[in-house]
Every structure is written in C-alpha cells, then in structure tokens.
Design a protein around this nucleic acid. Structure first.
Lengths: 170, 170
DNA sequence: AAGCAACTATACCCTCGACAATATTCCACG
DNA sequence: CGTGGAATATTGTCGAGGGTATAGTTGCTT
C-alpha cells in the first residue's frame, strides 16, 4: 500500500483516547479485585445504589450498563449468590423483577469506593491543572453528546448516565 | 449511605471518558463487522501492517495488543483460517514464529480503513474545532504518559504504540 | 562441552458475555 | 371477553479470551 496511513492524526487521536481508557481500566480493575469485585459488578452496584431504594428492574439495569439482558441475568446470579444483591418480585408487573442491593452490597461498595476515587485522582484528574482538566472534560462532553446513543445533550453534568429514572430512559 | 457520592466530579469525569470510549468502540465495531473483522482482528491487522515486512513475532504482537500470548494464538488461528495472515517460521530464532499479513489481509484492511477514518472524523475529531481538539488531545496525552504502563513520555506523537521496533519495546 | 536457566508457543480448562429460543405476563384491539 | 402481539426474564449454546501447565528451543555458565 503506502507509507504509513497510520500516522494520520485521526488514528493517533483515537489511539490516545483508547490507551488512556485501557490504562485506567486496568488500574481500576486491579483495585476492585482487591475487594472481590469485577468491573461489571462494580458498575452494577453503583448503578443500583444511584437509584431510588437501591433497586432497579433487570431491563433498566441492562440499559444502563450496556450489558445484554442475559448478561445482566448472569451477573445478578453471581452477585446474588455472593449476597451482594437480591431479586425482588415486582408487584405491579409480574413479568419484571427488581435487583436490590443488600446491606452487604452497600458495605462492599463503601469499602471499594474511597480507593477508587483516590485512583481517579492519582491517575486522571490530578494529572492536569484545573484549566487543562476543564478543557479536557469540555471536549469529552461535546464528543459524548454526539456519540452517545442516548445523549440528552442539554443537561450539563450527568455524565455517567441520564438519571435514575424509574423506567426505560434510553 | 449518604446523598450521592456519585455526584463527585471525579466520578463524572471518568464516566465521561468511559462513555466516549464505549460510544466510539461500538461504532467502530459495527463498521468493522461489515468487513468481517472483529476489533481485535482489526487491531492485529493494523499492528502487523505498521511493522516492517508486515510481520511481527507472536510475542511482540501480544505485547502491542495488550493481549495474552494464548489470546494471540487464538486470534492468529482464526485469522489464518480466514486467510488474512499466515505463520512463518523465524530463521534466526527457531523458537519464534512470525505472523505475517497476506495480500488478502492487506486488501481487507484497505477496504475497512477509509470507513474507519471517516467514522473517527464524524464522531470524534470533527466534533471539535481545532483549538478545542488540541486541548483535548494535550490533556489525553498527559494522562496517557502518566497512566500507561510503558509510556516513553518523551516522544511527541506515537500515541497508539511506541513504534514498530523489532524486539520487545516495553 | 554440557547442563541449567530463560524464553517462546501451544494445549487444556475456566469464566464471561452475546444470541436464539422459551415461558410467562401484560396490553390492545376486535 | 378473548385472542394476538409486545415485553420481561431466564436458559442453552457458542465463541472469545485469560491463566496455568507443558513441551520445545536457545543461550549462558561453569
């Protein structure tokens, strides 16, 4: 073919983004594992804890975690076996069932969270002075609003997910 | 526990980054699949094509793709079965074997690449005006240099990987 | 020159997640 | 009121990928 197509600035740009993601992911995963949580399990725990009554329907959980419904079933199976969450039947709709965080699940998350925040600060937000960080976040936000499937685009901050609405919000 | 710990700016920051990554990944994967390539396969193909003589030792390939050696074996198996690459014995070191891109592999990559670049531009680099993009990339670079396991930190651009050195460069 | 240490690649087993199919429940429409 | 279609959750099956153990090869040390 030709002399490096791969020097294209677009390639290096995504390479950069993906490397940062990979690096952070690896460190996060290691820290979570110290607390007996996989990244998905951590994600599930945070999503549930963000939600009213620490619970969410299986489908909504799937929507918020970019996990398939069967994937959610499997994860919830594991976490229920480990006592971090339990299933609860939905009174109004007998097809649905809730996944609700147990006290043990909350405790586990509390154990994990401080270290997680520290990690973020150490390897991400703390690496830049405030103006540079803001510039970075502004750029990310703009790209996010464009690329994300269910970008609400108007809101300023939600970042990790629209909100904890009770039903399908995507 | 307490009123949202999750409004913490650090959480929203990583949420932003991860959402962007997820969004881009999904679109890239879809486009690659149109050409019969999985993301890993695309990655392997680009890494090999970046390298002299379109080949790389299995181990080096593993190092450059953050894939385990067994994972590389699997991927190479599949891609060899599909005719995209072939294994070639290494003359100088009879322990090693090379994975080398076939003409069909090159063709496949050529088919896939333009669309890929277009996607990057549409959903990432084209979403920001040049100053904002540069600010974003500068920030990412800085974080990358800190967080990436084998950050050379001195070089300006390599982004996606040190270089195509022949031996272990990590 | 020979044995030992280091390195490379693969085989086997495990976990994880997606897709397709299934059973149950809800809703809309005739 | 009943029937067909949509939605919800679960299960079976499959592929992907990592970890460990194993076998083969090379290089170093003595």
């Amino acid at each position: 073919m030709n002399p490096n197509v791969f020097d294209d600035s677009r390639i290096t740009a995504v390479g950069l983004l993906f490397e940062v993601h990979a690096g952070l992911s690896a460190r996060f995963a290691a820290q979570m594992e110290e607390h007996g949580l996989s990244p998905v399990e951590f994600e599930v725990l945070t999503r549930l804890t963000r939600s009213p009554d620490n619970q969410l329907r299986m489908t909504d959980l799937a929507a918020q975690t970019s996990l398939s419904t069967s994937g959610v079933t499997r994860v919830v199976d594991r976490m229920e076996r480990d006592g971090l969450i339990v299933r609860r039947a939905c009174a109004s709709d007998r097809r649905s069932s809730f996944a609700v965080v147990t006290p043990a699940g909350l405790r586990r998350l509390d154990e994990c969270l401080p270290g997680h925040l520290q990690l973020i600060e150490d390897w991400f937000t703390g690496q830049l002075d405030p103006p540079a960080l803001n510039a970075l976040l502004d750029g990310l936000r703009q790209v996010r609003d464009a690329v994300h499937p269910c970008a609400t685009a108007g809101s300023g901050d939600p970042a990790t997910g629209p909100e904890n609405a009770k039903s399908t919000d995507c």
